[in-house]
Computed example of a mutant assay.
Amino acid sequence: MAINTNRPTSPHLQVYRLPLTGIISITHRMTGVMLSAGLILFVYVISALAGGAESYDTMQTIMNQWLFKLVGWGFIYALFFHLCHGVRHLIWDTGSSFELETLNRYAMIELASSLILTLMTFVWGHYGL
């Protein structure tokens, strides 16, 4: 039995470009994993608080390193992105907003909202506004 070589090949990343809604969907899953992993760090912080002054000082030293600050802000962004995407899913649950133009507009609003919420949190936390 001969293999049919005239069949079209499946699209791959060099040919096929994911639509914005597909990228947002994948990112939503990734932020869910990031939030789960971030909870481990959150539990460490809570246990350091309960552990007393020495434990708290050690945790503060670790958390003041640039990598852990970056991870913390990544966790906050993931939280807001996941929240905004969840709101979009609630809108979809009404059975509306499935037109391509609306889907893309809501995806951009979702990205902008999550960034704005993260920046507002940074300003509020950094400047105490």
Rank of each mutant, 00 (worst) to 15 (best):
D57T: 11
A112Y: 07
E54D: 15
R88D: 12
H85C: 09
E101R: 11
L83Y: 14
L117M: 13
A78R: 01
W66S: 12
M63Y: 14
Y106E: 11
H89G: 12
M63P: 01
W66C: 08
N104E: 12
E99R: 12
G74H: 03
G52E: 00
S96C: 09
T118G: 05
E110W: 01
E101Q: 09
I109P: 05
A78Q: 00
G51K: 04
L79K: 02
T118P: 02
E54T: 13
L70E: 06
W66P: 01
L83P: 00
I62Q: 07
E101W: 10
I116Y: 07
A53H: 12
S55R: 07
L115I: 12
S97Y: 14
L115F: 10
Y77A: 04
C84W: 00
V87A: 13
A107R: 03
S55A: 13
G51S: 05
L67S: 10
L119M: 15
L83E: 09
T94M: 02
D57S: 14
E101P: 00
L70T: 11
G52W: 02
G74I: 00
G95W: 03
I76F: 03
F75W: 14
I109W: 11
G74S: 04
K69L: 10
L83I: 15
T102S: 08
T61Y: 14
F80I: 02
G86V: 01
Q60G: 06
Y106D: 11
S114F: 03
D57M: 10
W92L: 15
N64C: 08
I109V: 15
I62C: 07
M63S: 13
L100V: 15
T102I: 12
H85L: 03
R105S: 13
M59V: 09
W73M: 05
L119T: 12
T118I: 03
L111P: 01
G95Q: 00
G86K: 00
L119D: 06
Q65R: 14
I109T: 09
I116K: 06
I109F: 10
C84Y: 05
W92H: 15
L70N: 05
L67G: 07
D57E: 14
G74C: 03
G95S: 01
N64V: 08
H89R: 13
Q60C: 13
L83C: 14
M59S: 10
L111G: 01
L115W: 07
G51I: 03
Y56Q: 08
T118Y: 02
E54A: 14
W73K: 01
S97F: 15
R105N: 11
L79Y: 09
Q60D: 12
E110N: 10
L83H: 14
D57N: 13
L103W: 03
T118D: 06
V87Y: 11
T118M: 06
G51N: 02
